[in-house]
């Protein structure tokens, strides 16, 4: 049986379907977008070849693009803090709780299964100013002036709010992964540390968290990848606004391609997103591998 699976033809037979689907729906479309990116095309009529003009305009002239890059990087950092480290904290908390653990796990996980559209609608209503939503109505009980506190319509707050809502939705997912990893840490390690005089905090900092380090890195890579391409929360909650205060690279790509009808320019943004994901992903993997070797 083992030998059968070692044969190249059999391995290829298993790999080929996934390779074919991935190539068709990911690799081909990336190259397709790359080919569009050297044209000026509004989706109707003839395409005009413009070479690298779209890229040069994006990189040299388009300040809104750079705002979206800055916002995306900031957004990604927030997502890692919220989803990975927030999820880890909740998982640690759950490992310490004995009563109602399953209920709490379910409650934390519920947002994961609610659709993004529903979540953004809920938060849109909760944080509404006109008419006042639940949050502002409650705040107005403390101070009447707070009835008009702006959240998604405040350019200084909108990106935080979008990041918070996405973090709220996915924190439960990473909590479950971390919880599974933490309960898999051998109990003997903790017991040995206790005998050596380590307190609870030291046990987590020096034994349990280092033990699940590969899981943490895997989760960071997942969140990194998802956040750099994040689209739905910003688009549904703020449409990248007000102005371009919560514009992410993916929403900017959509806006250029499908609202501004600049398919070539939008494709150039898409290719830069792919390149950014590849660079940041590679750098992170290299850094995490190097630190692993040091340890």
């Amino acid at each position: 049986m083992d030998k059968a699976f070692n044969r190249t033809s059999v391995v290829l037979m298993f790999v080929f379907p996934a390779f074919l689907v991935f190539s068709l729906f990911v690799v081909v479309t990336v190259f397709w977008a790359a080919s569009y990116s050297v044209y000026d095309w509004n989706g109707m009529g003839e395409k005009t070849f413009v070479g690298f003009k779209n890229y040069l305009t994006l990189l040299q002239v388009d300040r809104n693009f750079w705002t979206s890059v800055k916002n995306t990087l900031f957004y990604t950092v927030w997502q890692i803090l919220l989803q990975v480290f927030g999820g880890l904290l909740i998982a640690i908390f759950l490992t310490r709780v004995i009563r109602f653990r399953a209920t709490l796990q379910t409650m934390y996980y519920i947002p994961v299964v609610i659709s993004t559209v529903a979540i953004t609608q809920i938060f849109g209503k909760l944080l509404s100013v006109t008419p006042p939503g639940v949050v502002n109505s409650l705040l107005a009980l403390i101070n009447p002036d707070w009835r008009y506190l702006e959240w998604v319509s405040n350019p200084r707050m909108s990106l935080f709010i979008v990041a918070f809502v996405e973090g709220y939705k996915y924190i439960g997912l990473y909590m479950i992964i971390f919880y599974a990893a933490l309960v898999g840490v051998p109990e003997e390690l903790g017991e040995a540390a206790t005998i050596d005089g380590a307190n609870l905090f030291q046990q987590y900092m020096h034994i349990k968290i280092p033990y699940i380090r590969p899981v943490i890195i895997a989760n960071i890579v997942l969140v990194l990848n998802g956040s750099l391409r994040s689209f739905d929360f910003s688009y549904l909650l703020t449409r990248g606004g007000p102005g371009n205060s919560s514009e992410l690279m993916a929403t900017y790509m959509y806006k250029q391609a499908f609202s501004s009808l600049k398919y070539g320019y939008g494709s150039a943004v898409a290719i830069l997103i792919v390149i950014t994901c590849l660079i940041i992903g590679s750098v992170f993997r290299r850094l995490s591998r190097d630190s692993q070797e040091v340890i």
Binding site: G241, P242, S260
Partner: peptide
Amino acid sequence: LDAATLVAMADAQQQLALGMI
């Protein structure tokens, strides 16, 4: 307005009204 200018103006007018520019 063409679609691209319209989108740009829609964003810029919000920024103007909010004092961002």
